[in-house]
């Protein structure tokens, strides 16, 4: 019990004094996850819009695959990315294994299906509302997608935040492809796993505080966004 209390006190101290190691790890976590999020959103949003407005042959198949991928265990994603990037793998020449780039790739694969699925649901609902009007106005396929993406931007931001929450809290995949190397690929979640294993509860708890803080911030933002969305203020 005393362990826990002194750990908490030290953790609190680390946070308020902006401990160098804590800041470095947190910054890297944000950098990796935000980069992954931006790239994943750029892939997922147009894909979701396309799935909403176009009736192409493999549409149902693509949606089913996205939904299936959403439930994919991150560890398996990590394993697959590892195999692809390892020296003997097809992308081995790039030398990306155990770099932040590898972690970004893994996180992109993990969050694209999530963002695309959530975004697709909102865009599909909006499309049902808009369908008759946009068809009657002879709006081009590309303009339809643009219109939906713009008018659903609140819901899309919610989707992105959900993706961010998943990316920043993920540990299995980035542990495998990043290797949790000090000053190189160590991020919040992998550091917590390591420090807990070593018995350094103070640092682990401090890292945990930061992670929880981020998660709470994301959830508050989602809550606030969906409220303004419901009230029709965009």
């Amino acid at each position: 019990m005393t362990d826990l209390w002194s750990g908490l006190a030290q953790a609190f101290w680390l946070v308020v004094t902006l401990d160098a190691e804590l800041v470095e790890i947190s910054a890297r976590s944000l950098q990796v996850s935000l980069t992954a999020l931006v790239i994943a959103s750029l892939i997922a949003m147009p894909l979701a819009a396309l799935l909403a407005v176009r009736r192409f042959r493999w549409r149902r198949g693509v949606i089913a695959i996205l939904n299936a991928l959403m439930g994919l265990p991150p560890v398996v994603v990590g394993l697959v990315v590892y195999v692809m990037l390892s020296r003997s793998g097809p992308l081995g020449v790039l030398g990306l294994l155990f770099t932040p780039a590898a972690m970004i790739i893994a996180q992109i694969i993990i969050v694209v299906p999530l963002i695309a699925s959530i975004a697709h649901q909102s865009l599909r609902d909006l499309w049902q509302e808009y369908h008759d009007l946009l068809i009657s106005m002879n709006v081009s396929q590309w303009q339809k997608m643009k219109t939906l993406l713009w008018d659903a931007r609140r819901a899309l931001l919610t989707a992105s935040l959900a993706g961010f929450g998943r990316a920043i809290g993920e540990v299995g995949a980035i542990m495998i492809v990043g290797g949790n190397i000090d000053h190189a690929t160590r991020v919040l979640t992998t550091a917590i796993a390591l420090e807990t294993g070593k018995g350094d509860f103070a640092l682990a708890l401090a890292l945990g505080f930061v992670l929880i803080g981020l998660a709470i911030a994301v959830n508050l933002a989602i809550h606030w966004l969906s409220r303004t969305e419901r009230e029709g203020r965009w």
Binding site: Y130, L133, M137, N138, V139, S140, Q143, D151, G232, W234
Partner: peptide, 22 residues
Amino acid sequence: FQRPVMLRRSVLDNIAYPLLVH
């Protein structure tokens, strides 16, 4: 339409929409 479709935009942007997309 019988039930008018409102784009989730301002009144002004709704009216300008058909011109902008063309």
